[in-house]
């Protein structure tokens, strides 16, 4: 009898051994996260350089990026702590910048992640990038290890980049200009894949309209404004289609009150 704890137990015929399976999950996670790393690593380096140029020790760059792990917040955070802002304003800023993550719970495949510790880490590391790579069509079939692997790799790119940037900080020549476009390119590419997987024309148009409306109406809070508006539009659209036809109520037709 093979015990559940022995990784090297006799392999099931025609299937991967647990060890091979673990390795293939990690290889997949590395591949999934590679294009994200192209944006996250240089951004991390830029952040690390900024931290040491502000006069802080290099390991603060590792601490900020490893523990807070929220790219866009950290740039603002650095400015706040250098000005010795009260903790309350740090909390309010963190809330305003990251409130968009509330929406990610609707489609991030946390139910695929196993174990309390795994789920805890997975929510902790639920960055825009992790959401982007896993929330699309394919992500719903990813294994627990593959999802956690993607998140750990993104964590490593960001915190590793920040540490490298901080250590090289003063030695680095004038930074390469224009690298920040990697973030735009990444989200664009992932959006194209998601649009193609969904084959739903009104949704992308609606999203771009919401982004534009958010940018024009609330320039300082564009992201939460656009996401809230987009969610509201989807809810309205759902209610409308449900009211006229019932294409999305495939499993239960009417009767339930969701």
């Amino acid at each position: 009898m093979a015990t559940q704890h022995d990784e090297r137990a006799a392999p099931v015929p025609c299937a991967l051994t647990p060890r091979e399976e673990r390795r293939s999950d990690l290889v997949d996670a590395l591949r999934d996260s590679a294009s994200v790393g192209l944006g996250a690593f240089p951004m991390g380096v830029a952040f690390g350089v900024l931290v040491v140029h502000s006069g802080l020790e290099w390991w603060w760059a590792s601490t900020f990026s490893g523990v807070i792990f929220a790219g866009s917040l950290e740039f603002l955070f650095l400015g706040l702590v250098l000005a010795a802002a009260p903790l309350a304003s740090i909390a309010v800023t963190a809330f305003a910048v990251n409130v968009r993550h509330v929406f990610y719970a609707l489609s991030f495949p946390l139910h695929r992640v196993r174990g309390r510790l795994g789920k805890a880490y997975s929510t902790f590391a639920l960055t825009d990038e992790a959401y982007a790579v896993t929330a699309g069509g394919a992500g719903r079939t990813f294994s627990s290890r593959r999802i956690l692997g993607i998140q750990a790799f993104v964590h490593l790119y960001w915190a590793g980049g920040a540490t490298a940037g901080a250590l090289l900080g003063s030695a680095l020549p004038a930074e390469v200009r224009g690298l920040e476009f990697a973030v735009t390119a990444l989200f664009t590419v992932l959006a194209i894949d998601a649009v193609r997987a969904g084959r739903d024309v009104p949704t992308p148009v609606l999203a771009l309209g919401c982004a534009l409306a958010g940018r024009l109406a609330l320039p300082g809070q564009m992201l939460p404004a656009a996401l809230a508006l987009f969610t509201a539009c989807l809810l309205a659209r759902y209610a409308w289609t449900r009211y006229t036809r019932t294409p999305y109520a495939r499993t239960r037709r009417g009767g339930d009150h969701a």
């Binding site: 929406f103 990610y104 609707l106 489609s107 825009d128 959401y131 982007a132 929330a135 699309g136 735009t184 989200f187 664009t188 992932l190 959006a191 998601a194 649009v195 997987a197 969904g198 739903d200 949704t203 992308p204 609606l206 999203a207 771009l208 919401c210 982004a211 534009l212 958010g214 940018r215 564009m222 992201l223 656009a226 996401l227 987009f230 969610t231 989807l234 809810l235 759902y238 999305y248 109520a249 495939r250 499993t251 239960r252 339930d256 969701a258």
Partner: peptide, 21 residues
Amino acid sequence: PLIAYLSTAMPAGVLLILAAY
């Protein structure tokens, strides 16, 4: 079914909004 609908319709839109952001 509402959450099922949102989880299929949201990702593409959220990614476009992030790109625009």
